[in-house]
């Protein structure tokens, strides 16, 4: 079954697990969501909730040999990426799906000049000549608003500031006009003023190129400002999924509410006691069949042996249905 025309990517019951000394860890446990064309879908959650692993599973960049996709489908333009060959994946990565990583310094090769790294994309994916690739790369730097692009092409990554480096990584991701960009914490390593520049740039480029974006972040502020739809993950599972407006307006799951209430905003009275979520993020090592969040809260609910259903509570608003965690 291919996804409807306005859906560019459909993740369906994806399961990814890691082989560790303590056995198999299910980092992604039946995650489903879809990405509409030209829209931005945010995945939010705390560290270890499986948001990055979900992204890396989509583009099949899991650490090998530990990480493995055990089930589910990732449908992208009529192709199931879970079952695609390595050659097909190599064509898609950097081609029709661009990736922006958190730390631009590790995404760029420190011993090659910027120009060579950006031009390489055009050489590989578009089979451009050396000269054409160089010109296309210069144009790409201009597009991501890097001043004096001819000169920057000759620089090495360490000569650029963090914000400039992240612009280069965005240029790499967008070089082949992808229909989907996966951005994994693209602004976490940056200062707020630079973060605002980069988010603004991504939104502008989205208008120009029309790509969809999966934005992974732990920052609800970034989500609220940039995303059309939001997926909230906890301990490898999606606990809630809705449009950004609905999610912030009336969050259904206790975990989402907890996250929203625990951040101080400029409106919170000074030194007032902040809401907290007791305990810490669940360890994936303990196998829990029932509600993961009840486990964190130390509740042995009556349904603790059964995994809560994931259902549509209101039009377009999905949540895990746990009698103790979900309000309706």
């Amino acid at each position: 079954m291919s996804p409807p025309a306005d859906i560019i990517l459909e993740v369906d019951k994806l399961i990814t697990s890691f082989e560790t000394e303590r056995g198999m860890l299910r980092a992604v446990d039946q995650v489903s969501f879809s990405v509409p064309r030209g829209k931005t879908v945010g995945i939010v959650g705390e560290s270890g909730c499986g948001k990055s692993v979900t992204a890396m599973s989509i583009i099949r960049l899991l650490p090998q040999p530990a990480g493995r996709i055990l089930g589910g489908q990732v449908r992208f333009k009529g192709l199931d990426l879970v079952r695609a060959s390595d050659a097909e994946m190599q064509k898609i990565r950097g081609g029709d799906i661009g990736v922006i990583f958190q730390e631009p310094m590790t995404a760029l090769n420190p011993v090659h000049r910027i120009g060579r790294q950006v031009a390489e994309i055009f050489r590989i994916h578009k089979k451009f000549s050396r000269r054409d690739a160089w010109d296309a790369a210069t144009e790409m730097l201009q597009r991501v608003r890097i001043p004096d692009p001819e000169k920057r092409m000759m620089d090495y990554p360490h000569q650029l500031s963090g914000g400039m480096r992240q612009r280069i990584v965005i240029a790499l991701a967008l070089a082949c006009k992808p229909s989907l960009v996966i951005a994994d914490e693209p602004t976490t390593a940056l200062d707020v003023t630079v973060q605002a520049q980069i988010l603004d740039l991504m939104t502008q480029l989205q208008d120009e190129i029309g790509m969809s974006i999966i934005l992974i972040t732990h920052d609800l502020g970034v989500i609220a400002e940039t995303c059309d739809e939001v997926v909230v993950m906890y301990a490898g599972r999606v606990v809630e999924r809705a449009s950004a407006a609905d999610l912030f307006d009336h969050p259904l799951h206790a975990y989402t509410r907890g996250l929203l209430q625990s951040i101080p905003t400029l409106e919170t009275p000074s030194k007032a006691v902040l809401q907290t979520i007791p305990g810490m993020v669940a360890s994936l090592a303990d196998h829990v069949h029932g509600c993961r969040f009840c486990q964190r809260m130390g509740r042995r609910s009556s349904v603790s042996n059964e995994r809560p259903r994931f259902a549509e509570v209101a039009p377009g608003h999905w949540a895990e249905i746990c009698p103790l965690c979900t309000s309706q």
Binding site: S161, Q195, A196, Q197, D200, G221, A224, E225, A244
Partner: peptide, 19 residues
């Protein structure tokens, strides 16, 4: 530049150039 955790609040941003 602080992103507000409320999608309804659309503040005018002062975008700084450079670093």
């Amino acid at each position: 530049a602080i992103p507000s955790p409320d999608p309804k609040v659309k503040r005018a941003k002062i975008l700084l150039e450079g670093d």
